[in-house]
Write a protein that binds this DNA or RNA. Structure first.
Lengths: 340, 340
DNA sequence: AAGTAAAATTGGCGCGCGTAAAAAATTAGA
DNA sequence: TCTAATTTTTTACGCGCGCCAATTTTACTT
C-alpha cells in the first residue's frame, strides 16, 4: 500500500495506466472491461485503495443505484429484520440501500420522503406509518418514483406486499376453536390498516364458525405495544373481565405484554389441563419462542416479504417507472408453541 | 402548489426572484439571509416545493454534514435504540446520519467503512463488531475521520464512550450477594471486549468480597444470545449443574434465554421464598421489564451513551480532525425487578 | 496476411450546487 | 441626507464523475 493519496479517478487512472473512462466503466461493472485491463486496475487498487466519490457518482448517473427504505419503527424487531433482508437483496443486486425510520412520527416520515425525493432514487420500499401518514404525499411520491408498499397498505392501486391477514388470522382462529374455547380478540391500537384488517378478519372467522366475536378494544394509539398489552391485561385480569379464557392478540408484542400481566397475576398460561388461560399472537416476533411459555402465533414470512417486495420493485424499475400492480398477499404459517 | 416542475436551484431562483447564490445561502442556513428575502424564498417554497439535490450539495461542501453510524446488529434492540438516539441528536444539530449495520459479519463491517470513507464524512460513531473486526483498518479509519467508538472499546487511545462494566457488574454482584446466595456468572460469547471485561469485573467483584467466582463458560461465538442462554440453561438445568442457584448473565438477552429454559423445566424464578433460583442480567433490554418474572438487571444509560458519543464527536469535528481523548465510562443503574 | 469486431483512448460536455470576488443594491446610523 | 455597514447580485470557477462521439488500439477470424 503506497502512502500517496489518490484524490480522484483522474489520479487513479494515471497511476494505474488506464484511461479514466475505462476506469469509470470498471467501477460500474468490473466484468465490462477486458480481463487484462481489469487485472491491471485491480492490481493498482491494491496499492492505492481508491474509491470513487459516492456523491459524484450519483449526481451524474442517469439511473442511480439507490433504493430508499422507510419503516415506521426501526426499533421494532419485525421491521428491523425485514429491513435487514431487503438491504441484503439490494446489495446483492448492486444497489445501495438508504434506510430511514419515521420513529412513529408523521413529520419524520414526511421528512424522509422529502429527503429521498432529493436523491434521484431508483426506487423505494416503504412501510407506511399508517393512519397518521400523509397519504396524499405518499401517493404523490409513489407516482414519481417506483415504490413498493409493504406491511400495511396505503389505499389501493399501489404495489403492495404483505401478509394476508384474513388468511393468517383465520388460521389461528380455527386452530384455537378446534382445540378449546373460542378466542376473544385483544386488538392493537389503530395505527395502521393491519390493525383494522386483523380485527375484521377475526370477526369474519368467528362468524364463519357461527360464533359470536368478542373484541377487547384499546384506547391508546401509540406503538408501545408491550406496555399496552401489559396494562390492558392487568386491568382486565384484576376483575377477570376477559370474555373468554382464550385471548388472541393482534400481534406478538401485545401478547408479550399480556403474558407479563398474566404472570404477575399468578395465572398459568398454556393449553395444558392446569392452565387458566390461553394466549396467542401474530407475527412470530424473534423473541416469541423465548417467552414463558413460548408463544403460539402466526409467522409472517419475513424473507418472502422482503423477496417479493424487492423483486416487485426491480420489475417496476426495469419496466421504467411507477405503475399499477396486483397486491401480493402472503400466507402466514401457524406456529404452535405452548401458550395456546 | 404549482404543477410546474423545478429541476434545480437555478430554476427555483428564477421563480422565487432571488439569485441562486442567495438561495444556496438560505438552504445552508435560513437565518443567514435577510428576513424579507427569507420570506420570499419560503413563500416560493410553498408553491413549488423544491429541494436541493443531496449529492450535489455534498460533493461541493468543504465540510459535509454527514455522520456515519456503524453497529454490529441493527436487529439488536440495544443498538437500534442507541442508533435512534444518535440519529436524533445528529438531525437536531443539522447533520444527516447514514446508518450501516455489519449484521455480525466482519466483511460487511469493512465494506461499511469503505463506503463511509468515500463520503467525505464529517465524522463517525461506531460500535465495533469486536473480536472479528479488522482492528488495523478501523484504526486507520479513525485516524482519517473524526470517530467515536462506543459500546465496546477497540484498543486504547481512541475516543470511547461506554458503560463502566467494572462499576455496573460490581453493583449487581454486590446486590445479589447482599440479598442471597452469591451469583455464578453465565458468560456471553467472546464477541467483543465487553464480554471479557464483564467476566473479569465479575471475578474481581467476587474476590473483593472474599468469595470464589464461578464462571459458566460458553462455547459459541455468535450473536444469537437468547438461543445460547436457552440451550445452555437446558443443558445445565437438566442435571442441575449450575454452581449456585443465583445466576448473573452477562447480558439480558442471555438471561431471556435462560428464563425460557428455567420456565420449561418448571422452575420458579425470583427472590421470593418459594423460588428455586434467581436470574439477573445486564443492559436493561427493552423487553426485560416484560419477562416472566420481570428481569433484575443493570441499566445502561442509552440516552447518555448517545449524548456523550455525539457531543464528543462534535468536539472533535470542531477541533478539526481526529485526536486522542480520554474514554468516557458511564455508570450503570441497578434495576431491581422480581427475577433476583 | 488482411479483415473485422471488440475494447480502450482522447477530448470534452454537463450534472447541480458550493463558493469566491467584485459590483450593485439595500439598510441603518449619525 | 449622506456615509458606512450589511446584504444581495453578477460572474465565474470548480468539485468528481457519467457519458458520448470519434479515433486508435487490441484481439480474434478466415
Amino acid at each position: 500500500m503506497e502512502d500517496q493519496k489518490i484524490r480522484n479517478m483522474e489520479e487513479f487512472s494515471a497511476v494505474s495506466g488506464i484511461s479514466r473512462p475505462t476506469v469509470s466503466k470498471y467501477f460500474n461493472d468490473p466484468t465490462s472491461v477486458r480481463r487484462s485491463t481489469r487485472d491491471r486496475i485491480e492490481h493498482a487498487l491494491k496499492q492505492y485503495d481508491f474509491r470513487p466519490n459516492l456523491f459524484a457518482i450519483n449526481q451524474n448517473r442517469k439511473s442511480t443505484k439507490n433504493i430508499g427504505i422507510v419503516v415506521p419503527h426501526i426499533v421494532d424487531p419485525f421491521f428491523a429484520e425485514i429491513v435487514r433482508l431487503i438491504e441484503q437483496r439490494c446489495i446483492e443486486a448492486g444497489y445501495w440501500a438508504i434506510v430511514l425510520s419515521s420513529h412513529g412520527e408523521a413529520e419524520l416520515e414526511a421528512n424522509a420522503l422529502d429527503l429521498l425525493r432529493s436523491m434521484k432514487l431508483a426506487g423505494a420500499v416503504i412501510a407506511p406509518l399508517g393512519e397518521r401518514s400523509d397519504r396524499a404525499r405518499m401517493m404523490q411520491f409513489a407516482s414519481e418514483i417506483p415504490t413498493v408498499i409493504f406491511d400495511s397498505p396505503l389505499g389501493s392501486g399501489e404495489a403492495f406486499v404483505g401478509t394476508d391477514n384474513f388468511h393468517s388470522i383465520g388460521l389461528i382462529v380455527d386452530y384455537l376453536c378446534r382445540t378449546g374455547e373460542p378466542p376473544c380478540f385483544l386488538e392493537m391500537p389503530a395505527v395502521n390498516e393491519n390493525a383494522l384488517e386483523r380485527k375484521n378478519a377475526y370477526i369474519g372467522a368467528m362468524e364463519r364458525q357461527g360464533l359470536t366475536p368478542e373484541v377487547v378494544p384499546v384506547a391508546e394509539s401509540d406503538w408501545g405495544f408491550e406496555q399496552i398489552g401489559y396494562e390492558q391485561g392487568l386491568r382486565l385480569l384484576s376483575r377477570w373481565s376477559f370474555p373468554t379464557s382464550t385471548v388472541l392478540c393482534a400481534n406478538d408484542r401485545i401478547a408479550i405484554g399480556l403474558l407479563a400481566a398474566a404472570y404477575e397475576r399468578g395465572l398459568r398460561i398454556g393449553r395444558g389441563p392446569g392452565s387458566a388461560m390461553r394466549i396467542a399472537g401474530h407475527d412470530d416476533h424473534p423473541l416469541s419462542r423465548f417467552t414463558c411459555p413460548p408463544l403460539t402465533t402466526v409467522a409472517q414470512d419475513h424473507a418472502a416479504i422482503a423477496d417479493k417486495s424487492v423483486s416487485a420493485l426491480f420489475d417496476m424499475i426495469e419496466d421504467g417507472g411507477p405503475q399499477d400492480r396486483a397486491p401480493v398477499k402472503l400466507e402466514g404459517k401457524l406456529i404452535m408453541r405452548l401458550s395456546a
